[in-house]
Simulated assay, not measured.
Amino acid sequence: MQQPRCAGCGIALQSEHTHTPGYVPESSLDKDSAVCQRCFRIKNYNEASSVTVNQDEFLKLLGGVASTDSLVVHIVDIFDFQGSIISGLQRFVGNNPVLLVVNKIDLLPRVTNWNRLRNWVQKQAKENGLKVADVVLCSARRNTGFDRVVEAVNSLRRRRDVYVVGATNVGKSTLINRLISDYSDLKRELTVSRYPGTTLDAVEIPLEDGKSIIDTPGIVYSSRLTEIIPREDLGAVLPDKPLKPITYQLNEKQTLFFGSLVRFDFVEGERQSFTVYVSGGLPIHRTKMEKADALYAEHRGVMLAPPNLEGLEGMPPWTRHRLRIQPNTEQDVFISGLGWIQANGSSGATVDVYAPRGIKVMLRDSIL
């Protein structure tokens, strides 16, 4: 029998995985003109829900965007900027303008210099090969800056379709819902948008001027810690309130454990301070490097948690990343999904970061 497809977007329907494309309750699979959960929410509640795909499927989905005349809205998470920006996006969007929407700015300390942050974002985007027409800082949770997002979309769209792209947990659905409420009366049926080389279909949300918002699935990047830890530990790792920086004065050969998720060793350098920007729900333990292995062996998954011992069993083993912070530079040690550690010394340092295999760990210019 032919697999049933969504009457709204054309995707193959399935009833096993609620957060993947094409989900419907099992009782709806055999109904005529059944629509997937995402289309149902858009059509009946003016609301988009998040669905996810892996990176390869997403890149196939983007294959035809360059040949369109569209505005591309790329949403990133300021807490996990390098982990959520779509590397290589520029080659898929062609000459279409890109609006970079930076979400979750409410997590940054209230004393943040917003002009400096905006300049930092523009520089980081450029280093990732992304040409942006504009950058907007906002907070979906606090509904801050969204008027500016809508203004930027209105200014850049010029009666074009709008593609909204982003990784998981960056606030893409919140933005889609706001755009729906501002631009669409949803009087027409959802339409099918198919792309060459893939059966995965985005959802087109019709606009009053005959154009559409194209809601693309969220990309799953396994290089983010939040994608590989047990779901029950996300609350400890993902901050839900402004970060409270903690500064540690460290001598060389001292170690910080972030639960049992990540280990940070100050291998070599003069005594200096390191400021940690992570969720307040994540316990941090300091020890000497000479005692670190024994401490981890004895207390992993118990005192050094999250995750617990059972959660650790399902995670990749640690990989060591050696990073050399140059003298007289302002740099962060960035760990995707966990946060960052700002090096405050002027004399330089050598540090080792132990993180689950595949997690992005890097040095970057200090964000603050």
Rank of each mutant, 00 (worst) to 15 (best):
G8Y: 01
C9E: 00
G10V: 02
S15T: 09
V24C: 05
P25M: 08
S27V: 12
S27E: 15
K31V: 05
F40K: 02
F40D: 03
Y45S: 13
N46T: 05
A48N: 09
T52R: 12
V53G: 01
N54S: 06
Q55M: 13
Q55S: 12
Q55F: 06
F58V: 08
L59K: 14
L61E: 02
G64F: 07
S67T: 11
S70F: 05
L71F: 10
D80W: 07
F81G: 04
F81M: 10
S84G: 08
F92Q: 05
V93M: 07
G94N: 10
N95S: 13
N96S: 09
V98F: 03
L99Y: 03
V102C: 04
N103L: 07
K104A: 03
L108Q: 05
P109Q: 10
V111F: 11
V121G: 00
Q122V: 10
E127P: 01
V135A: 10
A140P: 02
T144V: 07
G145D: 05
V150N: 03
V150M: 07
A152M: 13
A152D: 05
Y163A: 01
V164P: 02
G166D: 01
G166N: 03
K172Q: 08
T174P: 03
I180R: 00
I180H: 03
E189S: 14
R194N: 11
G197R: 08
A202G: 07
V203D: 00
I219R: 00
I219S: 02
Y221C: 04
Y221S: 07
S222Q: 14
S223R: 13
R224P: 01
I229V: 15
R231L: 13
R231E: 15
E232M: 10
E232Y: 13
G235D: 13
P239E: 06
P239Q: 06
P242Q: 13
K244R: 15
P245V: 11
P245L: 12
I246W: 09
L261G: 00
V262S: 02
F264Q: 03
E270A: 13
V276C: 06
V278S: 01
S279M: 08
E298G: 02
H299I: 03
R300F: 04
E313L: 14
P316T: 09
W318V: 10
R324K: 15
Q326K: 15
Q326I: 08
E330H: 12
Q331A: 14
V333G: 00
I335F: 06
I341Q: 01
S346L: 14
S347I: 04
D352Y: 06
Y354H: 13
A355L: 08
P356L: 12
I359C: 04
M362D: 06
R364L: 08
